[in-house]
Design a protein around this nucleic acid. Structure first.
Lengths: 136, 136
DNA sequence: AGTGCTGGTCTCTTTTTGAGACCGACACTA
DNA sequence: TAGTGTCGGTCTCAAAAAGAGACCAGCACT
């Protein structure tokens, strides 16, 4: 029984095995992907990949993000080493966010997904519409 | 003022422009990325990219997903056209989930990010540890 | 008659997110 | 000098999403 699962030495199984007691927190892919998979992370990475932005600029660029989530998402991206935060002692003080080398490196991988999304947006929308039609 | 934002014809601006009244829902990248950026989506895509799995198999493969979220995430992936759901009239009936062509296509883009995550997991973990150290 | 397996749904609680008021320090304006 | 605006946030409260786990029908086997 469950011969597929038992026989295949797949990555999924290895991640399960690593986790040992079911904690599963050590799965490298999950650990990293979680950070990028937030609702706003990829969008902010896209913005910062172009050039550094200040807090207020990002807020205007992504109008439907709340200030709270902008702060928090930038904090998380900074914590994971993707984003650098620099405070300039102007009056009033300004804060600039920019991608680190690690951030640029990660974005180049994320970029593949973004390109795919641009190319296949219609296909996804059509699939969605077709699915909703049959379910109605 | 805000010369950077005004002068640059960046993708970000185009997405903003498209959205017109601030709705922003028509941004293709957001629309597609949202579907993949769920907590469990990428993990399930990884699993199904290997070979089809049944509901219970997926549940055992990803032990810390709730049955509710497994159902819902698979439903969403199916709706977006990434996953095919097939019911076999065995007793008890079994349900098999597999990637569609669109799903495989999307996964090949997502795969770049996964590979990056595997390669750079340590760098991210170190950044995180260093950041937490300075914040403590 | 009882137990187990299948793939779910339903309800309840906890966590995450969103909306928006509020903050101090300074500049500019009237 | 008092009022207004900008900066980058934090704080509180309500709404939405996710997690935990009970429950379900249908059939097989004991």
């Amino acid at each position: 029984m469950d011969s597929k699962i038992v026989n295949l030495r797949s990555k999924m199984e290895v991640y399960n095995a690593i986790s040992g007691g079911g904690n599963f927190a050590d799965c490298p892919v999950r650990d990293v992907i979680q950070g990028v998979s937030g609702k706003w992370s990829s969008l902010l990475m896209m913005a910062l990949a172009e050039h550094p932005y200040r807090f207020g600029e990002l807020r205007r660029l992504v109008p439907d993000i709340s200030q709270r989530m902008l702060t928090q998402t930038l904090y998380d991206l900074q914590r994971d080493g993707y984003v650098h935060r620099e405070v300039f002692p102007t009056k009033p003080p300004s804060v600039e966010y920019s991608l680190t080398d690690l951030g640029h490196s990660m974005f180049s991988a994320l970029h593949q997904l973004i390109l795919w999304a641009e190319l296949n947006h219609d296909a996804v929308r059509n699939a969605r519409a077709g699915f909703d039609a049959t379910q109605a």
